[in-house]
């Protein structure tokens, strides 16, 4: 299939970027989106041009490394799909595809389509953990957790920290990411002792990183490749109120 690509090229964080046109003549519809970019890069290198830089790692939809805003959609037009799991058969022959990096003040562009998402790491360092020494795995029936609670915690834990929620949000808010991490631990007994200070510290770090506030638009939920629910944000808000009153 033949494709016209408009790709964001930017030399570095301080440089001004712009869109550049490329065309791919014989891409296969069986290629993944990233393979199509590999294919383009090979041809660029052969021509002696600079390859387009983009982030990727596992290509199995679980590491959260891939990003890209494709035709205005973080991770492309499919729902519940990361860019690496998006295939060219979802596009038509002769399509023009606009490819941009995730845009947020907190995610500075490193080069081309690759952005620096270490702000998320710093939020995790602020509280996204249990600091108790857990030792060996306890006997399975020692800590009883209801099925519904376990499922909810597992759903929240599905967040791969890719940052699509930030890219989708008009405020570049990281609330969906932070709320998934807070929820996952707040729902389980292991996370309970630190839940108050965890949510306060993570939110404080989130604000410090210049992510915006939540306008409850729901774009994040629609863009999330792991379909993390808005319910998590309500839980985060609840946790903050609880932390201020109870502790």
């Amino acid at each position: 299939m033949k494709l016209h690509l408009k790709i964001w090229r930017q030399k570095g964080p301080q440089e001004a970027g712009s869109f550049k046109d490329y065309s791919v003549d014989n891409a296969s519809e069986h290629m993944s989106f990233l393979e199509m970019l590999d294919f383009l890069n090979t041809s660029l290198v052969q021509k002696g041009e600079e390859a387009v830089q983009f982030d990727h790692d596992c290509r199995e939809g679980i590491c959260g490394s891939c990003s890209l805003v494709i035709n205005g959609n973080p991770h492309g037009p499919e729902t519940g799909t990361a860019t690496c799991q998006l295939h060219m058969r979802k596009f038509k022959d002769g399509d023009t595809i606009v490819i941009e990096p995730f845009r947020a003040k907190a995610f500075p562009v490193i080069r081309d389509l690759s952005v620096n998402r270490t702000a998320f790491d710093r939020i995790m360092e602020a509280g996204g953990f249990c600091s108790v020494n857990t030792g060996n795995a306890p006997e399975a029936n020692a800590i009883l957790i209801g099925k519904e609670t376990a499922e909810k915690a597992m759903d929240s834990a599905a967040c791969i920290g890719c940052g699509a929620c930030v890219a989708a949000c008009k405020n570049a808010s990281a609330m969906l990411f932070v709320s998934a991490k807070v929820s996952q631990l707040a729902l389980l007994p292991q996370g309970n002792p630190e839940r108050g200070r965890r949510v306060r510290n993570m939110v404080a770090q989130m604000d410090q990183e210049m992510f915006g506030a939540c306008s409850n638009t729901g774009s994040c939920e629609a863009a999330c490749p792991k379909e993390i629910k808005l319910e998590n944000i309500a839980r985060l808000n609840r946790e903050m109120v609880r932390a201020a009153w109870v502790e």
Partner: peptide, 11 residues
């Protein structure tokens, strides 16, 4: 603040 968090207008 939200505007400042998003240097480029959302698509």
């Amino acid at each position: 603040e939200n505007r400042a968090s998003r240097p480029v207008a959302p698509n």
